[in-house]
């Protein structure tokens, strides 16, 4: 079985982002960039399936500028067999991203696509579901466990009501949630080796896809900060404050 994993380069989750004063976006120069944490989990899930003998190839794919190759190197260092870079400097929103992935899936024919459940920059949570729709494949989003039984995946999903289990026929799309696994640490020698591995580079012209219309960002602003609060010293003081507010 071949597994395709999509990864996105995002501002590292530890960075406190800054909104540009002119409202044109957030500052990304000189900011640490990483693989979207959910995509990291997706790679780990694919590697674990390979190590368990359920898959024989893990392909990592990303769409974006040249700098995204850093994240593909990380995926290779973790253990991905191949890395595909679809190079573009254009803004690629989820529907276009899903169309590109669909075109790639048609060509490469993986039995399973694992993506992160959302990217922590735009917090959209769309691409996996859109890809599944375009391919008319099953989807199992927000996965916290995956078991492969022949041509079916049994996936447990973290949903608001609890844990839902679905059976989905392969090929299928799964999106990874936090508790699916703990991604492995990369050893330095593996990082060095990954630097020498080749990355296959493609462009949007290699795919015959129609770009979706864009959701246009008109402005970016800082959220209204909460008024600073008070510190109380005792439980008594806490409770009398809550009483005054009519909360107890």
């Amino acid at each position: 079985m071949k597994i395709l994993v999509g990864i996105k380069r995002v501002v590292d989750y530890n960075v406190k982002i800054q909104v540009k004063p002119d409202g044109s976006g957030i500052t990304t120069s000189n900011v640490k960039m990483s693989i979207n944490p959910f995509d990291d989990i997706a790679i780990e899930a694919a590697l674990q399936l390979k190590e368990a003998g359920k898959a024989n190839e893990v392909i990592a794919i990303t769409i974006g500028s040249k700098t995204c190759q850093e994240q593909l190197r990380t995926a290779l260092a973790m253990g991905a067999d191949r890395a595909i870079h679809i190079e573009t400097d254009e803004e690629i929103q989820p529907l276009t991203c899903a169309r590109i992935l669909k075109a790639f899936v048609d060509k490469e024919k993986p039995e399973l696509v694992i993506l992160g459940k959302q990217a922590i920059d735009n917090d959209n949570s769309q691409t996996a579901q859109m890809l599944a729709a375009l391919a008319n494949w099953p989807q199992a989003t927000f996965a916290s466990s995956i078991e492969i039984e022949e041509n079916t995946a049994i996936v447990t999903r973290e949903i608001d009501a609890g844990l839902e289990t679905l059976a989905i026929d392969l090929p299928a799309v799964i999106s990874a949630d936090l508790r699916l696994n703990k991604p492995r640490y990369i050893k330095l020698p593996d990082m060095m080796k990954a630097k020498r591995k080749s990355i296959e580079t493609l462009t949007l012209e290699d795919f015959n896809i129609e770009q979706a219309e864009l959701i246009k960002v008109l402005k970016t602003t800082r959220p209204t900060p909460r008024q600073s609060g008070i510190k109380v010293e005792t439980v008594e003081e806490l409770l009398s404050t809550l009483k005054k507010k009519g909360l107890i």
């Binding site: 982002i17 957030i26 922590i120 920059d121 917090d123 970016t220 602003t221 800082r222």
Partner: peptide, 9 residues
């Protein structure tokens, strides 16, 4: 976006 640290219109 960004976990609520920015708002986009």
């Amino acid at each position: 976006v960004y976990a609520g640290n920015a708002i986009v219109t």
